[in-house]
Write a protein that binds this DNA or RNA. Structure first.
Lengths: 240, 240
DNA sequence: TGGGCCAGTTTTGTATACACAGAGTCGGCA
DNA sequence: TGCCGACTCTGTGTATACAAAACTGGCCCA
């Protein structure tokens, strides 16, 4: 489960005052993603509005966006509830992710600037060396992965694809909290990413897509092997 | 550009009273898709609320959903404007569509009920014969295409994939108004669809994906060949 | 004559008030 | 004691009023 870098609220980067509805959206989104609001939690409008210190009107807008993204689901006559997530959901998520990221990688191979991805390839190879060291810096590695994702998004140059992946990543970030990355997996992941970057730099869309598919397959297999079913914080199989 | 069947408001099927925000959403959505509200139209809140006979609050909810779907874009201090759409957008749309539908077809081949798709294959072959006749019924054909789409969605059994395709189809429906289908294209399309259905019935995901890719490629090429640039109702190249 | 600034106006953002619908509960009746 | 009905009460859906922000137009100054 390497490769999903959390997005933060715009306010974190630009200090300008945010609208109340935006603040509510990001606050709730983060609370859900961080599992502070576990699946099944009912989000009453008056209750949440009071908690966030805003009125119901902007809160409703925030809830509407969360519903649209699938992070919450309207529970007839009883407000909205935080959506559940299960191993079955993760599998489905990865099926969509594979489709989107393989296409992105293939397009990036055709349209991207080779130098950019060659550079990233070298960085991943260097990162793999670093991860073999005594004090592997996982955070720096995640940052690098985020840079590759952004570069691919950018090179693919497809607004709709980008937005579809943004929608998807919200859920992946949420799942990420369930995954345990170990040094061995990080090392393998670095090599896989180096392959992806290299294929894109080569302009070989077929190989880039294949490398992406391999990476995602391995990620999912690793995730499954961490046996989420035995984890108490993972809810039972429930539909979203 | 064969294969996108318009979705209708829930009220059309279930006569129960709809919330004002829902009505506003569907009304605006249809107005945009049908090009009654051309790209660039500014949708003032008070103006639209008055036009639809509702208050601003539910209207804002509707506009929020339209913005999230990309049908409109917020124009600071100037309300929301109907998003423009250009040939470049159509190409991007099809890149995303290819990724999603190929994946869907491949999954359907693995998980679907073969008999369902065998039946659809035969229906498409019969439709091809009918389209060769003197009075081709395009509407019946579109309905058949819609049935295949629904069957694939259903067989793929992936919530996220389904939702991503639903989001995409909104834009495709909108583009469809620009396309001119002719009998020859419809006939070819029927054969392509028969191939897709047959491959899924065979349980061959590879072939199903390839057949889907071919169909979408031909659709896009046909669309491009209708030369939308010469059509006056198509706006100039503008970003969405 | 061109650019920047200021005020008016329009439009959005937020808060509050009200109406309605559904669920849960309490009491009465069989 | 169990079941049915009405009632209450919580919570959402909608409307309206107010506040803040942004655009537009004009004016002044360089």
């Amino acid at each position: 489960m390497v490769g999903i870098v959390e997005q933060h609220a715009p306010s974190a980067h630009s200090g300008q005052p945010l609208r109340a509805s935006e603040r509510a959206y990001w606050a709730l989104r983060e609370d859900i993603v961080e599992w502070r609001l576990p699946p099944g939690t009912v989000l009453g409008e008056v209750e949440q509005a009071a908690r966030l210190g805003i009125s119901r009107t902007p809160l409703r807008e925030a809830l509407g966006r969360l519903n649209a993204e699938g992070l919450t689901a309207p529970h007839a006559g009883r407000g909205v509830v935080v959506a559940a997530i299960s191993l079955a959901n993760v599998t489905e998520l990865f099926e969509l992710r594979t489709a989107l990221e393989c296409q992105s990688a293939a397009l990036a191979a055709v349209r991207g600037e080779p130098a950019v991805f060659r550079q990233l390839q070298h960085e991943f190879l260097a990162a793999a060396d670093a991860l073999r060291g005594s004090a592997p810096d996982a955070r720096a590695y995640y940052e690098l992965v985020g840079r590759l994702d952004a570069a691919v998004d950018d090179a693919a140059g497809n607004t709709y694809l980008r937005q579809a992946m943004a929608n998807l990543r919200v859920h992946l970030v949420r799942v990420r909290r369930l995954a345990r990355d170990n040094p061995a997996r990080l090392l393998a992941s670095a090599a896989e990413h180096a392959n992806i970057a290299g294929a894109i730099a080569d302009g070989d869309g077929q190989v880039a897509a294949a490398a992406t598919r391999i990476h995602l397959h391995q990620s999912l297999e690793h995730f499954k092997s961490t046996d989420p079913h035995h984890r108490p914080d993972l809810p039972a199989e429930r539909t979203v």
